[in-house]
């Protein structure tokens, strides 16, 4: 069990998402940066579907009530285990009673917007509709369907695998798999159903200009500001199914990228869709950051997904090798 001693706003239990539930009108929820969660689960020897804690606003402080292995991945943050600094993206051993504290780093350039705490065995909250992910809108999943608060006690599952040697880390994917245009983080986008309905100058600006992440950006969606996107003629659509990554354009001409807590349907025109393999990059763009879009196609989107899978497979192999060597 772990006990929360301090907790900023909107920390939630998340796994890789309530996959396959959109057909029931239930959103996917899950970690905004599923790659960071997957990396953390690898570092502590967890299966891919184990749940961790998504931390959006430090400080965050917990006490481990049992000795265990843990890792904090995703956004960089200042980490102290019993008062001794430790590193992100690294497996570490905690004794029973140890206190882990996450704080914002003094450097204003600290990378990322969301950190993930993974603990060996996973956060063992009940599975709801096939997932442990917290869906705040429906108040289901996670810990009592809500965001975490100080005083909460979270059960841990029993570890399936012996975790890798503590003191081993992963090169974060933002370093290993960088993607930028003119020095700005970039996302690959598939043109969507209404793309051709926009004026050519708007289409050119969509790819050619930077977009700023506005303060109206959260787990539901990221509202971006930039050049006004104008359709050739007014568009009226009936509500239809949408997925995380869908880029809608409301009447004001400023796009919204749907994220993992998005509702499963909407009626705004869609200019594009951020590919699944790049959603983690947007999830880690803090409010005020500027991003760029890169046009891609179906094959490009699949190649990007293969690259992520390749990174995870290589990390899994390397950590398994270390584990085998340390127990030999």
């Amino acid at each position: 069990m772990i006990r929360l001693l301090a907790c900023g706003a909107l920390a939630t239990v998340q796994d890789r998402g309530r996959l396959g539930a959109l057909r029931w009108g239930v959103g996917t929820a899950g970690a905004m940066d599923t790659l960071a969660l997957a990396g953390g689960n690898l570092l502590v020897g967890n299966p891919d579907d184990a749940a961790g804690i998504e931390i959006q606003v430090p400080p965050f402080e917990i006490r481990f009530e049992v000795a265990t292995t843990f890792a904090v991945t995703g956004a960089d943050c200042a980490l102290m285990l019993d008062g001794v600094p430790i590193l992100p993206w690294t497996g570490a051993r905690a004794r029973a009673g140890a206190v882990l504290r996450l704080a914002r780093r003094a450097s204003p350039q600290a990378w990322g917007a969301r950190s993930y705490l993974c603990v060996s065995g996973g956060i063992d909250v009940p599975v709801v509709l096939g997932s442990r992910a917290t869906q705040l809108r429906g108040a289901i999943g996670g810990h009592q369907g809500r965001s975490l608060q100080a005083g909460d006690e979270l059960p841990l599952g029993s570890p399936d695998l012996s975790p890798p040697v503590a003191g081993t880390g992963l090169v974060p994917p933002v370093v290993a798999l960088p993607l930028a245009v003119d020095g700005l983080p970039a996302l690959r986008v598939l043109p969507a159903a209404e793309y051709e309905c926009y004026r050519p100058v708007s289409r050119a600006a969509f790819w050619g200009e930077p977009w700023r992440v506005t303060p109206q950006s959260d787990r539901y969606g990221f509202r971006l500001s930039g050049p006004t996107l104008t359709p050739l003629e007014p568009l009226e659509l009936r509500s239809h199914g949408i997925v995380p990554g869908t880029i809608q354009v409301p009447h004001g001409g400023q796009p919204i990228v749907q994220m993992c807590d998005a509702q499963p349907s909407g009626g705004y025109p869609k200019i594009g869709t951020v590919i699944e393999a790049d959603l983690w990059r947007l999830a880690q763009a803090p409010i005020g950051a500027r991003i760029r879009f890169i046009e891609t196609d179906w094959d490009g989107a699949l190649a990007a997904r293969d690259a992520l899978d390749g990174w995870l497979s290589a990390a899994r192999r390397a950590l398994s090798y270390l584990r085998a060597r340390s127990t030999a």
């Binding site: 960089d76 008062g83 001794v84 600094p85 430790i86 590193l87 992100p88 993206w89 690294t90 450097s107 350039q109 600290a110 990378w111 990322g112 081993t168 880390g169 992963l170 090169v171 974060p172 933002v174 370093v175 290993a176 990174w311 290589a314 990390a315 390397a318 950590l319 270390l322």
Partner: peptide
């Protein structure tokens, strides 16, 4: 993820505190 070194001359460090990293492929 960080531009600044983990430790520098004169820093007081605790037992167990990271002072450097070895990169082996994508492992640290």
């Amino acid at each position: 993820l960080r531009p600044e070194p983990l430790v520098g001359p004169g820093d007081r460090i605790a037992a167990g505190q990271p002072v450097g990293l070895l990169r082996v492929g994508d492992l640290l």
